[in-house]
């Protein structure tokens, strides 16, 4: 490197404290702008057009959004997203339960912990395939089990009444593991002296958990809820692998419907797909701004 000139080094020295953080943020901010912020605004502008992705764009204002509300497929997707959001939340208490169960010192506990964590390590695609075979009509283990009660058997993914729940169950498997690992690290930081003190005061079982352990796990709970909400809203891979939105569109979620309309084999409606994306983004924003607001409040309180 060549020696900096006197004036430059002077400027640098004077403003180093202000410039250094900006320089560190710059690469990330640039990427974030190009790959996240700009596409968001681009999607918003595309959602006002009738466009097949190739030809001439036609401005149609809010017509795409108007059509959404009378589109039964969109309503089904929205409902499914809500079901996903509610049931996915089960991952948080279930993860906590397993974490508490595994938070002990017995021989080989590390092996058990890694076994419980395993589903999170494998790809969602593999999870989807394993569960598809588990539910598969004819030879699936789950199908065989249901045949004990009903000789015809229940092919979960072929039945519109159960298919979404079948996919969510598959999604919960790795999500519970994720919440579990968050809580396990949280449990490591629980202050032993407080537990000791509580025990001297006669706290046990549920009361101990509720009044002593859980308050100390609040940061872990917060992160677990955040990743679960986001995981539920962006569910796409499992739907795509296990049912492709079927049977007859009953397991679609917003992200999958957007893909179908805009990008899939039969989807040539970029504008309509973008409108779905904007709606999904708006729903996510409700949660994301909530989380950011809470984090901001926690930081300024200190």
């Amino acid at each position: 490197m060549s020696a900096p000139t006197a004036s430059r080094s002077g400027y640098w020295r004077r403003n180093q404290r202000a410039l250094a953080p900006l320089l560190f943020v710059a690469p990330g901010a640039l990427m974030f702008t190009v790959y996240v912020v700009l596409p968001i605004f681009r999607s918003m502008s595309i959602s006002f057009y009738d466009w097949d992705g190739m030809g001439v764009k036609k401005w149609i204002g809010l017509a795409n959004y108007a059509e959404l509300w009378s589109d039964p497929a969109f309503v089904v997707s929205l409902e499914n997203n809500v079901i996903w959001l509610v049931l996915y939340m089960l991952a948080v208490p279930a993860g906590l339960f397993i974490a508490i169960f595994l938070n002990q010192n017995t021989r080989g506990i590390r092996i058990y912990k890694s076994l419980f964590f395993f589903p999170f390590v494998i790809s969602q695609v593999v999870v989807g395939l394993i569960f598809s075979w588990f539910y598969a009509p004819g030879f699936g283990l789950f199908f065989k089990l249901t045949q004990l009660f009903d000789p015809a058997g229940i092919a979960l993914l072929a039945d519109e009444r159960y298919a979404t729940y079948g996919i969510i169950a598959a999604g919960l498997w790795p999500q519970i593991a994720y919440c579990m690992i968050l809580y396990l690290t949280g449990l490591n930081n629980v202050a032993p002296d407080q537990v000791e003190a509580a025990r001297l005061d006669g706290a046990k079982g549920w009361r101990m958990l509720w009044y002593v352990i859980l308050p100390q796990l609040r940061p872990a709970t917060f992160i677990a809820v955040v990743v679960t909400v986001i995981g539920a809203l962006r569910s796409f891979d499992l739907v795509s692998i296990m049912t492709q939105g079927g049977p007859y569109g009953s397991t679609r979620v917003l992200s999958y419907y957007m893909y179908e309309e805009a990008l899939s084999e039969y989807g040539y409606r970029m504008g309509y797909g973008a409108a779905i994306a904007v709606v999904l983004f708006a729903i996510m924003m409700v949660f994301i701004s909530g989380f950011i607001w809470k984090m901001y409040r926690d930081e300024t309180e200190r």
Binding site: A158, E260, Y266, G267
Partner: peptide
């Protein structure tokens, strides 16, 4: 394309 997708989904539903 669009009619094909909706149509085949309908046939799939009819078969069930």
């Amino acid at each position: 394309a669009e009619m094909a997708k909706i149509g085949m989904e309908g046939f799939q539903e009819f078969m069930a």
